[in-house]
Design a protein around this nucleic acid. Structure first.
Lengths: 209, 209
DNA sequence: TCTGCTATATTGTCTAACAATCGTTGGCCA
DNA sequence: TGGCCAACGATTGTTAGACAATATAGCAGA
């Protein structure tokens, strides 16, 4: 979370964020302050606050005097997002003293998942970063992950790879951490993320290319 | 800049930010919304907006129902800030196709400066990141640099090193970029930032230890 | 002295309203 | 018929004032 906000805008923020990531609001949809205020039964300033927070995280874009719009992420965005994510997550796993329990939980949940496992994949990576000691690295990661989720939703990439394949790559990262080899952990993380990126890119080409 | 805000909160944000970085507001000072609104002659919501943006950047901290306070950065903060800064700036210089003109400008200004050159140093590093193509890497860097400026102000570290010494290290980084050696550029950047970190740390020990 | 209550200060949120600005639609003119 | 300009509607930007919720501090009592 980027900032500790008050409870009401926080709730609206959460809800809106889900609607955007779920593709309930398609890319390009414009989201006005009044509409949000009406939908959630709050005053416009409160809705405005939630929207501005989503803009800060990159899940919405807006310009002066125009309503916020759900961004359409293109190939360049995917490359930028995943490359930066690799930088941050490599630094994170290299700084991990041990495997965080939350990461193990997400890992097992992913391997056991029957349907869509994208959320478990995200949770695994978030847990790796959360388990590492630097709060600012975690903040920067959060700044990327919102758009990453949006991106995965937009490319309909839930099943580009099997849970077993993803799980095996995760297992390798965990093993390197446990073995006390941060360099190897970082390398595997970099490869894992680059693989996801390329898979998303080829899928996007098929859909929009 | 983290987000494109409207003009009035933007102006207040800029002014407040300067006052905080300048140490006009000492660490620990509490800044109320009303006080800001009064000082700048705007309504409280407008002041609130500026304050919340500074909180997002880490230049102020606040909890629910309490006024924002200027944070007192300790040794752990310095380490965290500079280590993460090294991660980001290394990635930035490694991605630089050539030396940005703004970086050259700041570099020359630093070498020619007679008094305090901290601003030129900051400008140089900002220019390096701004010259690199990824907007999200730049955003993450901006998230760190606010606190970095605050940190430098709090440790009264304007003259821990001569302009000539800093300039020489910068020159080395520029040379590596020009030579098309991103690995070397990243290494020199990492060393340069680690040096700054250690000097700030020892200075802080003298003052507060 | 320590505990508990009260009072004040501050933020959280709402309603209502006006100003500024952007996009669009319609009409007017060539 | 087609292009330019103006007015309109929609939306955001900003303000004012008000009330509720909460934290801090100071005071009173045991």
């Amino acid at each position: 979370m980027l900032q500790t906000a008050s409870v009401l805008p926080e709730a609206i923020y959460d809800e809106l964020r889900s609607l955007i990531v779920d593709q309930t609001y398609a890319p390009g949809t414009s989201i006005t302050e009044s509409a949000v205020a009406l939908r959630f039964g709050v005053a416009r300033p409160t809705a405005k606050m939630a929207i501005e927070r989503l803009v800060t995280e990159g899940l919405l874009r807006r310009e002066l005097h125009q309503s916020a719009r759900v961004p359409q992420l293109d190939a360049a965005d995917i490359v930028d997002l995943f490359d930066n994510r690799a930088v941050i997550e490599c630094a994170a796993v290299a700084a991990l003293p041990a495997v965080p329990v939350d990461a193990m939980t997400a890992h097992r949940a992913l391997l056991a998942s029957s349907g869509s496992f994208a959320q478990n994949d995200i949770a695994f990576h978030r847990a790796l970063v959360a388990g590492q000691p630097s709060p600012r690295l975690a903040r920067m990661h959060a700044l990327l992950m919102g758009e990453i989720e949006l991106c995965i939703g937009q490319v309909q990439a839930a099943h580009l790879l099997t849970a077993a394949e993803i799980g095996a790559q995760h297992q390798g990262i965990l093993d390197a951490i446990t073995a006390g080899d941060p360099t190897e952990a970082a390398r595997l993380t970099r490869e894992h993320i680059a693989g996801s990126r390329d898979r998303l890119l080829s899928n996007q080409r098929n859909h929009h290319g």
